[in-house]
Every structure is written in C-alpha cells, then in structure tokens.
C-alpha cells in the first residue's frame, strides 16, 4: 500500500507546484494578441486565395479585427454569409454586398476573329501581350493561352479549345478576382450575380471605331448606341466607341440584345436561344456545366 501513498503524494505535489508556476507565468506573460482573431479566422473559408487583397485568411482576419469598420473588407469566397458571421463576432456592421461572378468580355472565337499571324512563343498571355498585339489584329481581345485558367484556385474556368475562349463555370466561381488580375487584357469582369446566374453583358472591350473594329472581329462592339437608346434602366453607358452594361443597374429585360447589329451583347442562362453567337457560346457552356455536374455526382 505504501507505493500507492508515495505515488499520490508525489504526483499531487507535482500538480500543485506546476499549477503555481503556471499561474505565475500566466500573470507575467499575458497574451497580447486579441484571441478573437482566431475565431474570425475560423469563420473564414481558409482558401488563402488572396481575393480579399490580403496575402492569406489570417491576415484578413487581423485586418477585420483591427479596423474600425468592415466597409472596405470583403471575403469574395465566403461571400455575404461569411462577412455577416465575422461582423457578428466583432459586433460590427458588415457592408451589404451582392455576390458576384466573373464573365469573359470577349467573343472573339476562332470563327469570329480571323488570325493574322501565328504565335510561337511561351504559352502565356502575359508574355504574348507584352511582346505584341496577338494572333489577331484586335489589340484587346482574348489571347487564349490559359493564364486565367491556371490562376483559378477553384477550377472555375476552363478553355474551350474549339472557340479559343475561356468559359466560366458559374457554380464554382467565387469571384475572388484572381483571373481579373491575371488577364493582361482586362477582359474579365466581376459582375453582379443574378437569379439563375443570368447575365447580360457587352462581350467586347474594343475601343476602336466601328469600321476598324469589325475588321478585326465580326462580333465587336461598334459603339452604334442602339442598345443605349433602347435601355429603360440607364444601365448602358457609352464611351470610347464602346457600350458597357452596368450589372447593378441592369434589369435583365433583354431588350438590348436583339438590337445589337454585331451580336456583341451576350445573354447567358436565358431560356430560348436567339442569335448565332449566343448559340455557340451557350451550348458549349451548357455542355460543360452538365459534364461538371456529372463529374460531381460520380
């Protein structure tokens, strides 16, 4: 029985001594860091994509805790939900932001945009764009070399080899903005996510005059202002021979779409198919999204 007593005496005294020492140390070195940072970090999606403008989720959490308001802080991956949780944790107001989705503002497929020369360098849009104008004469069109595809953390963009244009998979897109940064031509835009991922936008950013632009590309925006005139919601802005549909203003009435003489305005995820280019783009994207869904099911 003595061994039991010795064990008890020994271990218990170790326990007490350790507790005293720990207490003293805890008093001496109080934690300086706000522990709420951990909670905020836990609430974030941990994608570390950098879409928020900070190098990682941890840094974003710190920024959230340290700043006075959450107005300038937004986690594109987690979206409004996450920001609400964070705001709740910190007792601050989260700014109401609509979820967004990336769209490709170029319809210059191989068919629509004749090639005028042949690029044979490193397969990177950034390299090609720095070197020269691209395979076609369009100085702003898609270079179809996968820079946006490679940079996407969520596999939400793939390159359609037949048209030579990237396609965004709406379901997967988190609007982190990585592709927007990666595109040397600034073709990709983050637009407001509408019901059923419907989207109407001008799929061209060419600022040349109409005659020159159509020479490069048959579906270029020629700045004819027809869509501008027909829009009732003041969602269309004209400038530099180019129309732009503001996604926050657009009511998806589709009135502008048939007006466009060059089919430069695209509608995505709407019911019946109307125009030729739309058909091409839509069927391709539909097929893929179905395929992706099938993959997920597997």
């Amino acid at each position: 029985m003595s061994s039991i007593l010795i064990t008890i005496l020994f271990l218990s005294s170790i326990g007490i001594v350790a507790a005293i020492i720990l207490y003293l140390f805890a008093q001496k070195f109080k934690v300086l860091e706000n522990p709420i940072i951990y909670d905020v970090e836990d609430a974030l999606p941990a994608a570390n994509c950098g879409g928020c403008g900070y190098p990682g989720c941890r840094n974003f959490a710190e920024a959230c805790v340290n700043s006075d308001s959450l107005d300038d802080l937004y986690c594109p991956v987690g979206g409004q939900e996450t920001m609400d949780i964070v705001a709740n944790l910190l007792g601050k107001e989260a700014k109401q932001t609509d979820p967004r989705v990336a769209v490709i503002r170029c319809s210059g497929s191989f068919k629509n945009r004749p090639r005028t020369n042949h690029y044979d360098g490193a397969s990177s849009c950034a390299v090609a764009s720095a070197l020269y104008v691209g395979d076609t004469d369009c100085p702003v069109g898609c270079l179809n070399m996968d820079d946006c595809v490679e940079v996407c953390e969520f596999e939400a963009i793939y390159m359609n080899r037949k048209t030579g244009l990237p396609v965004v998979i709406d379901e997967k897109c988190t609007a982190c903005g990585a592709c927007v940064k990666a595109c040397p031509r600034d073709i990709i835009e983050l637009r407001k996510r509408n019901k059923k991922d419907r989207q109407i936008f001008v799929s061209c950013i060419n600022k040349e005059k109409g005659g020159i632009a159509t020479k490069y590309c048959s579906v270029a925006c020629i700045g004819c202002t027809k869509c501008f005139k027909v829009c009732e919601f003041e969602a269309i802005i004209m400038g530099n021979n180019l129309a732009f549909i503001d996604s926050d203003m657009c009511a998806l009435c589709r009135r502008c779409v048939p007006e466009c003489p060059t089919d430069a305005i695209l509608e995505i995820n709407f019911q019946p198919v109307r125009t030729k280019t739309d058909k091409e783009n839509k069927t391709a994207s539909d097929k893929i999204s179905e395929k992706v869904k099938a993959d997920i099911k597997e």
Binding site: L11, L22, Y23
Partner: peptide, 10 residues
C-alpha cells in the same frame, strides 16, 4: 484554460 494542457497530459 491555463492548465488545460498539463491536465490533459496527466
């Protein structure tokens, strides 16, 4: 909290 780990270890 402060004696969490010692306790667990024991």
């Amino acid at each position: 909290d402060k004696v969490r780990i010692p306790s667990f270890i024991v």
